[in-house]
Computed example of a mutant assay.
Amino acid sequence: MTAPLIHPTAIVADGARLGADVRIGPYSIVGSNVTLGDKVELVSHAVVEGNTTIGPGTRIFPFASVGHEPQDLKFHGENSRLEIGANCTIRESVTINPGTEGGGMVTRIGDNCLIMANAHVAHDAILGNNVIMANYVGVAGHVQVGDNVIFGGTCVIHQFTRIGAHAFIGAQSMVDGDVIPYGMAVGNRATLTGLNLIGLKRRGFEREAIHRLRAAYRQIFASEGTLRERVEDAAEIFSQDALVQDVVRFIADAQDRPILLPRNGHETE
């Protein structure tokens, strides 16, 4: 382990906590309440401010703005936080804001996330592990994103929306409703277009598990009965299936936003 390597043109405020092997490149700025874990790298021209903690191995590229005050008119200087996990990649001109009093006081990004150029993560958003945000993606305030979610380029997620684990959001989509785990949503306004079958196969889910999930999906989004009734039926029929139960719990926990449905309101396959 070696001491931090700080370029002469960089500014590191008194009080900043730097781990071993940290590299702070040209013209970067680190605020007094920032903690950088071991082997964090600010490539150049990056700014990290506020009560921000960045996990080991994360890299931040030029012109990223991390930890500055939220873009929320209700923010009044409260002592909120931003937490970014280990081994993340934050590309050029990304903006990430800390939490607010109205949302739990923390914005949190998990481990191994890739946030591509010009993307935005707003106040009080919670992102899981292994999330990929392509260029120009906008995640609004209070959004919750599960593990292994992929966002296509230039899509936008409405505030208070939930995106379930292993979901895929197509490019240029405007998502204003909750997307079930393992689901795929596309469009403006986005609709549920099926399951993220390619993602499930790539991540090694067993064929039989995928077949059961597809059967449950067809039942939940069928035309007969109410959504609640169909979800209850799926919960009983697939009571021993972990993937189906993930979907059932997600729908049962809906609060602020509606569940995103297929275009015709039910599955037709």
Rank of each mutant, 00 (worst) to 15 (best):
T161K: 04
P62I: 10
K201G: 11
V34C: 13
Q159L: 04
N196Q: 01
M184G: 06
V34P: 14
T53P: 09
T89S: 10
A3F: 14
R23F: 15
R228I: 06
K74W: 10
R23T: 15
A209P: 05
I198T: 10
I96N: 01
G50I: 07
V137A: 06
I90V: 13
T193W: 15
E232V: 05
F61C: 14
E101G: 11
E208H: 01
E269P: 08
H211V: 12
G141Y: 02
Y27P: 00
V175C: 03
A10R: 05
A20Q: 12
M174Q: 02
N264E: 09
Y182M: 04
R218L: 03
F151M: 00
A20M: 11
V145D: 01
A122Q: 04
R202M: 08
I251S: 03
T154N: 08
E208P: 05
I115H: 00
D176T: 08
D176W: 02
N118G: 12
L18Y: 14
E267G: 10
V30R: 02
H7E: 10
K39H: 07
F221V: 10
V139C: 05
I109G: 02
S239M: 03
Q71H: 13
V179H: 04
T268D: 15
G85T: 03
V47L: 11
H68Y: 15
D38R: 06
A185S: 06
H266M: 07
K201P: 11
V186W: 06
G225T: 13
A216T: 03
T100A: 04
A20P: 12
H158Q: 06
G138L: 01
G265K: 03
A122Y: 06
V106T: 04
Q240A: 11
V186I: 13
D233L: 14
N264Y: 09
L200A: 10
G265C: 03
A190S: 09
G153P: 05
D256E: 12
P4N: 09
A222R: 07
K74A: 12
A46D: 11
L5Q: 12
V94F: 00
A20L: 10
H7A: 10
R230K: 07
P262L: 06
N97R: 01
C155W: 09
I169F: 03
V47E: 08
N79G: 10
N118T: 10
I169Y: 03
R17Y: 15
E269D: 07
N118S: 13
Q219M: 09
N130V: 09
K39G: 04
C88E: 02
H120W: 04
L42V: 11
V34Q: 07
G199S: 13
T100N: 05
G225F: 13
L200Y: 08
D256R: 11
T107N: 06
G57N: 11
R214V: 08
G99T: 02
S44T: 07
N33M: 12
G177T: 03
D246C: 08
T89I: 12
D178E: 00
I11D: 14
R230M: 05
